[in-house]
Design a protein around this nucleic acid. Sequence first.
DNA 1: ATACACATACCGCGCGGTAGGTATGTTGAC
DNA 2: GTCAACATACCTACCGCGCGGTATGTGTAT
Lengths: 184, 184
Amino acid sequence: MTSIRQSPKQPEVLRRKLLACTAQLAAEQGINAVTIQAVAAAAGVTKGGLFHHFPSKEKLIEAVFRDQIEQFDGAIEALLADDADTHGCFSRAYINVVLQLSDNPLIAQSLSVISDTALCQIWSDWLRDRLTRHQATDASIELEVIRYAADGYWLADLWKVDSAIRQEREILRLHLINATMKAP
Amino acid sequence: MTSIRQSPKQPEVLRRKLLACTAQLAAEQGINAVTIQAVAAAAGVTKGGLFHHFPSKEKLIEAVFRDQIEQFDGAIEALLADDADTHGCFSRAYINVVLQLSDNPLIAQSLSVISDTALCQIWSDWLRDRLTRHQATDASIELEVIRYAADGYWLADLWKVDSAIRQEREILRLHLINATMKAP
DNA sequence: ATACACATACCGCGCGGTAGGTATGTTGAC
DNA sequence: GTCAACATACCTACCGCGCGGTATGTGTAT
């Protein structure tokens, strides 16, 4: 049988494509739709090709999760570059990034809903690390409330609640952004 | 072969036990551990027995989800009985119930993290219904923020973030309760 | 010639689901 | 009160399929 292999790509390219396809599949069709073969097919590759980059499905999911957090962290760092060492700078950046996640459908952060213990640990570790790192510029309790509210806002987006109460959500969002700028 | 069937139970009893076992299994071992056989075994019954009560796994999960929402709704209604027709009464009740969920490990609300479209719709429908029902006693935007913050608080609990920043969470929680009482 | 980056072909297992059997409870005619 | 007739509430045994994973082949670049 003649091979229909296309021109070889940079290995890192396919790896990133697999990560993206996994995230997209999870976001659009739910986590149950994320199978090895479905991901491979979406990336235009076979299972063998996928397993060349990731040793197991578990590691693939974990890699996607870490990648999502990395993007999230990068967006926060970018904001922190302009607003560092002020009180509550981390929470402000966090809030702004989270509130923008809904706009940005490309980030399939919805994959985060996987209730896997190991993945929770990764997120928990990241958050604790950032909180302790910025504890010198601690936020006020009012700003912390807004940070938690932003998480709730994101959660409502995950659960497609916005389709029911779209305009109320927009009002709330603007209020959160406004309150964030005022709070210390 | 002699049957080892135990004394027959009320049908509704086993049905509720199956719902409870499914929720517990999902909460303790993750959604991946929820298989038909695992649930049946946990309830001390065979697969055949389970399928007598639920036509498919999908329907079982949905039933568990609806049951959880029903319990959640019941707790809110109980609080509304003492505080009805005041401004923001629904949001106040909602906040108090959500903030108590973390204390109460028995409610395996963590099952809600299933990113299934149909389940999201159930939750979305419930919330929209309650919001429109209580729109005559609309809450202030400040109280709405607290309601979203309560969701975020619950989400942090799901992701086991509390293990890292337990005392900060307790402070925040008290602040949320306090602010809820003050807000209109 | 060697290492890499895939493709091909296959395996075993556990899953959701089904078919049919068997105790137990319930009803109603007499 | 008795007993047939039926419905209920499970159990037993089985099936097919799709999944994650493996072993091995093959084209390409250096």
